[in-house]
Design a protein around this nucleic acid. Structure first.
Lengths: 231, 231
DNA sequence: CGCGGCTTTGATGTTCATCAAGTAAAGTGG
DNA sequence: CCACTTTACTTGATGAACATCAAAGCCGCG
């Protein structure tokens, strides 16, 4: 991790519209003084579960995984987050320690805001509070709905889902490089590494996708969608 | 469903300490005018998913299930909520329609507050907003953590968990009446009705629990805990 | 009284995890 | 830079966990 100089004042930040649009003048000035920018390389830990919460972080560029160690001592990935998802919002207002770990799966930059300052802002600016409630609720709903949907699918459906997820939601391209290892994909959609590989190979043999190492190319999105929906 | 007369003014409400402790005098008076009490019998629908959100509801007495229809056209129970869990808080700030259904599984009374009034309160009272954020975050965290834990357990572990859940968290008694059918238990912990029955019988044969219709009595909590933790 | 829903048990088959074993790739130290 | 270790990837064989199917008893309700 590396602290980087503020490239832009909050005034000019393109993420301002996200949540901080209602902050004006002096408020935004103080805001700018209570934040710092951080840079994480691929694989670096951004937040470690059970550590104390002192800052609220949000992702400006990159890609991260939200994960947690299960009782089986294996790691489980709860969600993948990209910019505009408010990654560390989770559990920030409910506990004094983080419930989840967050790790960069691509080089990521993060804006960190002092948590006490954020709380004082909620108290003094009602519209900001409402925006925050809205964003928080949406983030959680998405996680619950996704896990809910995945849990009623078979292996093939889950693999299809995750390929479509990276293609449509993250990279917006039929061809992309998987940011996760086969093992991590298993941790994300609840299956063994062997079966991740097996089903990817199966899809390749059936001409649904092309595989070259970590590069995936969707060759038949129609079928992939059907497998995702029915499987 | 039945609208019942206000039994007590918000001033005297024992649930005030939950969330509304910071409302004083006039604020609380207006609050009292913007709410109504509702009574639901066992089995009645409190909230239907995809319906418009006009009120924020919270449970004063009884027990409810939060559930949702899956793509498999089967119902899935996401969580069981009792008084002090803020049932309809979920998705209230993120969408204009409910994401989930809520159904009474025991006779329940609910306090309903106009949603626009609640929003105006968030805007004008920062401490109330912070309390709400806190409660919302806790509610969601609990759901995610519970589902997370259940998903890594085998059938026996899940059944053990649910028996302990009702015994320790809901009824505070070794002997209790299940508020759910075998089918609903399956919907809650993701297994078929037949397997719910099979494993309950197994536990009975092993002398871990006693079963008489819907009445369950825990006979060996030690073992049940071990099955829950290891299974 | 009979119908539908809930419960129970057994038999069967599918899905998936585990085990084993080998290849490829990627880091590590001399 | 090359031997060495480790980590990631891949495929097949086996068995366990679990869903599905079938059949029958039970109970509440119109």
């Amino acid at each position: 991790m590396q602290t980087v100089p503020h490239t832009v004042h909050c005034n000019e930040c393109k993420f301002r519209s996200l949540l901080f649009n209602n902050l004006k003048g002096e408020e935004l000035e103080i805001f700018n003084q209570n934040r710092r920018d951080l840079l994480f390389k691929k694989g670096e830990t951004i937040i470690k579960e059970s550590h104390e919460i002192t800052e609220f972080l949000y992702l400006k560029t990159g890609l991260v995984k939200i994960h947690k160690m299960g009782m089986d001592k294996n790691d489980h990935i709860i969600s993948i987050a990209q910019p505009l998802d408010f990654v560390s919002l989770l559990s920030i207002f409910s506990k004094s320690i983080f419930e989840f770990s967050i790790t960069a799966i691509e080089e990521s930059t993060v804006c960190a805001i002092n948590i006490e300052f954020l709380e004082s802002l909620v108290k003094s600016n009602g519209i900001f509070a409402l925006d925050l409630l809205n964003k928080l609720s949406t983030t959680y709903d998405n996680i619950i709905n996704t896990r809910f949907m995945l849990s009623s699918k078979h292996l093939r459906g889950r693999i299809a889902y995750i390929i479509l997820f990276f293609s449509n939601k993250i990279y917006h391209d039929n061809k992309f490089e998987l940011p996760l290892s086969r093992k991590e994909i298993g941790e994300l959609i609840n299956m063994t590494t062997e079966n991740v590989i097996r089903i990817l190979s199966e899809f390749r043999k059936d001409g649904i996708i092309g595989i070259d190492g970590k590069t995936i190319e969707i060759q038949n999105e129609e079928i992939l969608r059907k497998i995702c929906e029915l499987g």
